[in-house]
């Protein structure tokens, strides 16, 4: 196969940008589902740097780590969305500012 020449730092920049967008979304969004979507965006950014480093260092273990990250993300999404449904059932809202029972 013909080798490609995309520098590693380009992939890391894209990965860092996606992670930063995820953090910004996590901070500025007020809908609990959108906050969850932002977390998934962060996980995707990290996955990209895993794969880029795996290709760079010729270490296939990086791709296996991506697999594990996906498994954890699936478990997190299942449990988190169940929690969101339970919260919505009791509080009738998806706005995180109104879920403040622990606040005085």
């Amino acid at each position: 196969m013909v080798p490609s020449y995309v520098p590693l730092s380009y992939y890391l920049l894209l990965s860092g940008f996606l992670f930063a967008c995820g953090v910004v979304g996590f901070l500025i969004k007020r809908n609990i589902i959108t906050i969850f979507v932002s977390i998934e965006l962060m996980l995707n950014g990290v996955n990209l740097s895993f794969v880029a480093f795996a290709a760079h260092w010729h270490a296939l273990a990086g791709q296996v780590f991506v697999f594990f990250v996906m498994v954890v993300a699936a478990a997190e999404a299942a449990v988190g969305l169940a929690i969101i449904i339970a919260v919505y059932r009791t509080r009738e809202t998806l706005n995180v500012d109104q879920v403040n029972l622990l606040k005085l």
Binding site: S4, V6, L8, S9
Partner: peptide, 25 residues
């Protein structure tokens, strides 16, 4: 934070290439 991260990455990671197909994926 992201500008700082970009600066560190561009400064320290060099510009080595990622060859496609070299990795047995």
């Amino acid at each position: 934070g992201s500008v700082l991260m970009a600066w560190v990455m561009l400064r320290h990671s060099g510009t080595e290439s990622v060859p496609i197909g070299a990795l047995p994926g």
